[in-house]
């Protein structure tokens, strides 16, 4: 805890927060680009999301008649929570002081906080679409969030710590040993990631049909910069899930010391891993169809059970 006060670490945390926030639209653009190519469509530039955000930030928002202060507050809280989460997920180095402030449980808490306000914002306008989206989001994440927390539990047991940096260091030290627990929770985390970010097969981010929407129905009434903030927050969240998955399960090249070559190597490596991960997501989204709405809980309960089995296989097989 004494090294918490070194300035380099905090500057690094600030830098990686800004980098993650800045790269998130690019990542969304990359996924879209790959997906378009896979589907034999002409792809927009991978910088298109920046243009979209820029356009929205310059538009004047329009509010629904009934929107209250919650509706206007929600995007700020959403983006604020994502900003904080971005500061606490090791991106290029495990030498990050913020992970002591925000351990993995708090990180899940941030995601929950953001979701809480988004759900309320969906109900605020008083239309059936908003309520429908909120209801679906709240009910489905009631199963996704526990799966996520069980993944956290398993990792915490593997590394005897809930500090994300220490977890990654511990996994880095053991190397790429095949552990059944990690395999299970990787599968669980991938499924939770799909659900929490509203991707196919759980939700379709590109849908225009209100009745099938989950995430989009909640934000139907947002426009202008509010919409920009909500979309940007969603992009950051997707990026964060990507970083979490690649840095926990494939933690090679994460910089242990703060030298420029090590950091650059780590940055390059994590970007390549993320690019593969994004391409994988595009493949999944191309290959699968969206599920029927009431199949989603089954999907999430499966994720929960996988995480649970991960935890159990750790307890039963790996604890001497």
């Amino acid at each position: 805890m004494d090294q918490q006060w070194d300035l380099t670490g905090w500057l690094l945390a600030l830098g990686q927060t800004l980098a993650l926030m800045a790269l998130a639209p690019l990542y969304a653009g990359w996924i879209k680009w790959v997906k378009c190519h896979l589907q034999n469509r002409r792809a927009p530039s991978i910088f298109q999301p920046y243009r979209g955000l820029n356009k929205l930030f310059h538009k004047r928002p329009i509010l629904a008649e009934n929107a209250s202060v919650i509706f206007r507050m929600a995007p700020y809280i959403l983006l604020g929570a994502m900003l904080l989460a971005a500061s606490a997920v090791p991106f290029v180095t495990t030498h990050l002081p913020t992970t002591a402030v925000v351990d993995m449980i708090v990180l899940v808490g941030y995601f929950a906080l953001a979701k809480f306000f988004l759900v309320l914002a969906g109900m605020d306008v008083g239309t059936s679409f908003g309520g429908m989206g909120s209801s679906r989001e709240a009910n489905f994440s009631a199963f996704a969030e526990p799966a996520m927390l069980l993944v956290v539990f398993t990792l915490a047991m593997v590394a005897s710590s809930t500090n994300l940096s220490i977890v990654m260091q511990a996994l880095q030290e053991t190397g790429l040993v095949l552990r059944p627990s990690l395999a299970f929770i990787l599968a669980a985390l991938l499924m939770v990631g799909l659900a929490e970010n509203g991707r196919i097969p759980v939700d379709n981010p590109a849908t225009h049909l209100e009745l099938t929407m989950i995430h989009e129905a909640m934000i139907l009434e947002y426009s202008g910069r509010y919409l920009a903030m909500v979309e940007w927050a969603a992009q950051v969240k997707l990026m964060l899930y990507g970083v979490l998955i690649v840095n926990i399960f494939f933690p090679f090249d994460l910089a242990a010391d703060l030298t420029a070559p090590a950091l650059l190597l780590a940055l390059g490596s994590v970007l390549i891993k993320l690019a593969f991960m994004g391409a994988g997501l595009a493949v999944v989204e191309t290959g699968l169809a969206k599920m029927r709405l009431f199949r989603v809980p089954t999907f999430l309960i499966l994720a929960f059970m996988l995480a649970f089995m991960g935890m159990f296989s750790h307890i039963l097989l790996e604890v001497a």
């Binding site: 904080l84 500061s87 002591a100 402030v101 925000v102 351990d103 005897s160 710590s161 500090n163």
Partner: peptide, 13 residues
């Protein structure tokens, strides 16, 4: 090393 939480910093954040 096992777990730490800083409520004041989280709140400030």
């Amino acid at each position: 090393a096992v777990a730490s939480y800083s409520a004041p910093l989280v709140f400030t954040g």
